[in-house]
């Protein structure tokens, strides 16, 4: 009675069981595999596993099995490193986007008088685990991203931008590289808000961000520093390079009319730039020099670029 039950047990398990001989021929499999591979016993028993599952990475698989035979050890293959080994259907084809069953496989040696004669492969369906873990990772990544960006403009937020500057500053110091900073502020933004309303102002902020983004290189770090103030970190850039970038930003914004409710809004920016020098001991020093240059640009009539002094006057 109990013997019968045990004999039937492998066919009731929700785990695949596959037994191979040392030449990789299939000696036995259970119902779980029969169903999920959608092949009958007749097609499979006695055949090479590479014929039945041509998707197997042959060299790797043979080496894996040779370790089981030679070392008499069990070994594993998990979904996190290899989503699946066998192309099997799974039980959640509708509610997950997985084509094949995600698997945890265990390879067990079966010894006959001290020698490994057979290998048992256990195949667990972990599509569920994989699905939820993937979603969790995605959510965590999105969360990490949203911690870094400004919701309105999608530029880096001030906190993340300052962290970037801190690390670029120490990198430039360590490797004696150039580093330039561009700070810019939209001219008469308060007036613009009063004229077009906050939604108009928001549209200007969003479009300005887009315009600036297109002018930057990979590796430049662009953030929204405050209300209508933006800042760009330019690694490996000396003064003329930074000045070119700033001038290009200024001109492009000046010539770019922003359409809002059938009207064109024209905006300009004032820009201050600073290049890192030996007097800058902290990253804040270079910000304050660029800031002073920015206010000089404002006070000299706006829509222009000003270069910071080497040392800020205290």
């Amino acid at each position: 009675m109990l013997d019968n039950l045990f004999a039937d047990l492998p066919n009731r398990l929700n785990t695949g069981i596959l037994i191979l001989d040392k030449n990789f021929n299939i000696l036995m499999w259970n119902r779980f595999l029969e169903v999920h591979a959608n092949k009958s016993d007749k097609q499979v028993i006695g055949k090479s596993i590479f014929t039945i599952f041509p998707e197997l990475p042959r060299k790797w698989f043979e080496r894996k099995l040779s370790s089981v035979i030679q070392l008499k050890n069990q070994t594993f293959c998990g979904w996190e490193q290899r989503h699946h080994l066998f192309e099997l259907s799974h039980s959640r084809p509708i509610t997950t986007d997985s084509d094949f069953m995600a698997q945890n496989c265990t390879f067990l040696p079966i010894e006959v008088e001290g020698e490994v004669e057979r290998i048992c492969i256990l195949i667990e369906d972990v599509t569920d685990v994989c699905h939820y873990q993937t979603q969790l990772n995605k959510a965590l990544n999105e969360l990490a991203l949203s911690n870094r960006i400004d919701g309105l403009t999608q530029a880096f937020n001030r906190k993340h931008w300052e962290e970037c500057l801190a690390s670029e500053f120490s990198r430039a110091t360590r490797y004696k590289q150039e580093l330039a900073l561009v700070m810019l502020d939209l001219d008469q933004f308060k007036l613009l808000n009063d004229t077009y309303g906050h939604q108009g102002g928001d549209k200007v902020l969003i479009e300005t961000t887009e315009v600036i983004n297109e002018l930057l290189r990979m590796g430049d770090l662009f953030g929204r520093y405050g209300g209508e103030e933006f800042a760009v970190i330019l690694p490996n850039t000396e003064l003329t390079g930074a000045y070119d970038v700033a001038e290009r930003i200024r001109k492009t914004i000046e010539n770019n009319a922003i359409e809002y409710q059938g009207k064109n809004i024209n905006v300009t920016v004032s820009i201050g730039i600073a290049v890192m020098n030996e007097y800058d001991t902290r990253y804040e020093d270079i910000i304050s020099r660029a800031d002073i240059a920015l206010y000089k640009a404002k006070n000299s009539g706006r829509n222009q670029v000003c270069v910071a002094k080497e040392r800020s006057v205290s």
């Binding site: 060299k59 790797w60 080496r63």
Partner: peptide
Amino acid sequence: LGYEADELSFDE
């Protein structure tokens, strides 16, 4: 460990 050049999964 018998990996092919195109399946270099270092973690694995």
